[in-house]
Amino acid sequence: MRFRRNISKLADEELLTEYKRSGDTAYFGELYNRYTPLLYGVCLKYLKDADKAQDAVMQLFEQLLPKISQYEIQVFRTWLHSVVKNHCLQILRKESRQIVVDLRADLVESDEILHLLEDEEPDSERMEALKCCMAKLPEEQRISITHFFIDEMSYADIVETTGYSLSRVKSYIQNGKRNLKICIEKQMK
């Protein structure tokens, strides 16, 4: 199609505007397609079945196509995430399955600790506190965090090097970050 070349260069919000303006489904299709890997993944997480997840992604597309022009959307990506989550939860409710709510609030951390660990923090006092707090961490947490943030090793790399299981590597890193955050805040007082 002639105009696919042009529309793939538009930003999300621009595609949305163009769709609202023209009603041409190619714009929304292009926009939605950018997110199919993420959408499919999230549906897999909640529905736990490849066929159901694919159906859910297509159903959502059909549902949004007529309705999306009515919404005021600031950041499409963030909005789409909450929409697909709700879509999956609705499907689960219809199936009357028990919905296991993930109470792990630490899915997304605040940026501060990440900035520090990724060496972006110009504040040398906090960097000093970081060094001191790292030394205080339990060994597995310190090793995992060092490998992940400083050596830039992936989870799979760390599993191979340390012999820890994948889930333990992840929890060492999560817990390590939390401990560092608490320790650094104490130090800075």
Partner: peptide, 14 residues
């Protein structure tokens, strides 16, 4: 994925 909940959930699914 640590900064992006959308990506994080998708990776969990995969």
């Amino acid at each position: 994925a640590m900064r992006d909940p959308f990506l994080a959930e998708a990776l969990e699914g995969y």
